[in-house]
């Protein structure tokens, strides 16, 4: 059974007539990794908030169509009621800081503390989340003193400590080095084997394509495509950013300097091999 399902769903912010999101049709299974790609203003962050259960209480808007988590409508409960099941990490990591904690360890523990868990369980979760995000060394630091990249690690750790069924990462790696982002996403991917679903919102193709089973492409608030990375390569790269090697492959395909039977490269690990296949048939 699907963990989350959107069907003919649209969202119109209060006070405007033009919908911010429309034509949403997709479902998400437990353990699945989905990438939502689109440019600035494509509606990614609005969709992320919607999926986190912030509509209509924290984000006043009118929703139409079906948008459910499990069997419940997403608009049905207060955001606080979803917190145990869905966690959203936003692009601005400082937005995740509660201001009630005076060390990183206390910040990460804050969520589990609110759930009233036993002390030993909280300590175990905090240690595991900090280790997974390679933030152990930051445990004693004051949250307000963190650099952007450090704060992003802590924000992700704080979300993980809630052990959600669904983790939404809205450009949550943007301040990390490529090396750090890749290895962190690899470890998060491992958690999906235990059933956690992961949605990556991004305007860059590379990382998402590498980990996501399916890609949902947004443009101007509309769902324009849903499918695998290979299938969506040509259309996606006209809308979102990608590294130079993938862009080169895209231009070659557009200019006809490619063979029809060679599939597009979707990660940098395969790009040289694909170009080679074009050359050597």
């Amino acid at each position: 059974m699907a963990l989350m399902r959107f069907s003919g769903a649209s969202l119109t912010r209060r006070g405007v007539t033009q919908p911010a999101l429309s034509g949403l049709d997709f479902s998400l299974a437990p353990g699945e990794v989905l990438a939502v790609l689109g440019g600035s203003g494509s509606g990614k962050s609005t969709l992320a908030c919607w999926m986190a259960g912030w509509v209509p209480h924290a984000l006043p808007a009118q929703c139409d169509g079906t948008a459910v988590l499990g069997a419940e409508s997403l608009a049905g409960a207060q955001p606080v009621a979803w917190a145990q099941r869905v966690q959203l990490v936003q692009a601005n990591p400082y937005a995740a800081l509660t201001g009630c904690a005076f060390s990183v360890a206390a910040e990460v523990a804050f969520g589990p503390e609110n759930l009233g868990l036993a002390e030993a369980e909280i300590r175990r979760r905090v240690a595991a989340a900090l280790a997974l995000c390679e933030a152990d060394a930051l445990a004693a630091r004051h949250p307000a003193s963190l650099s952007g990249g450090e704060a992003q690690r802590v924000a992700i750790a704080a979300a993980l400590a809630m052990q959600p069924q669904l983790l939404l990462l809205d450009e949550a790696f943007s301040r990390l080095t490529p090396a750090a982002a890749t290895s962190l996403l690899g470890r998060l991917h491992d958690l999906c084997r235990d059933g956690m679903a992961l949605v990556l919102f991004d305007k860059q193709f590379d990382l998402a394509a590498r980990h996501a089973g399916r890609i949902l492409l947004l443009d101007g608030g509309r769902q324009v495509a849903l499918g695998g990375a290979v299938e969506l390569f040509d259309v996606a790269l006209t809308q979102v950013r990608a590294c130079d090697a993938l862009r080169a492959a895209h231009r070659a395909r557009q200019a006809g300097a490619w063979h029809a039977e060679v599939s597009p490269p979707v990660t940098t690990a395969t790009v040289a091999a694909r170009f080679g296949e074009v050359l050597h048939g």
Binding site: A181, C243, A272, F275, G276
Partner: peptide, 26 residues
């Protein structure tokens, strides 16, 4: 320390050039 593991070394275009035996360029 700056490179993502198991990926084409970045910057990716010069690395691609090198793999294909083309003159390196960004």
């Amino acid at each position: 320390a700056l490179q993502a593991p198991d990926a084409l070394p970045a910057p990716t275009l010069p690395a691609l050039c090198q793999a294909l035996g083309l003159p390196p360029t960004a």
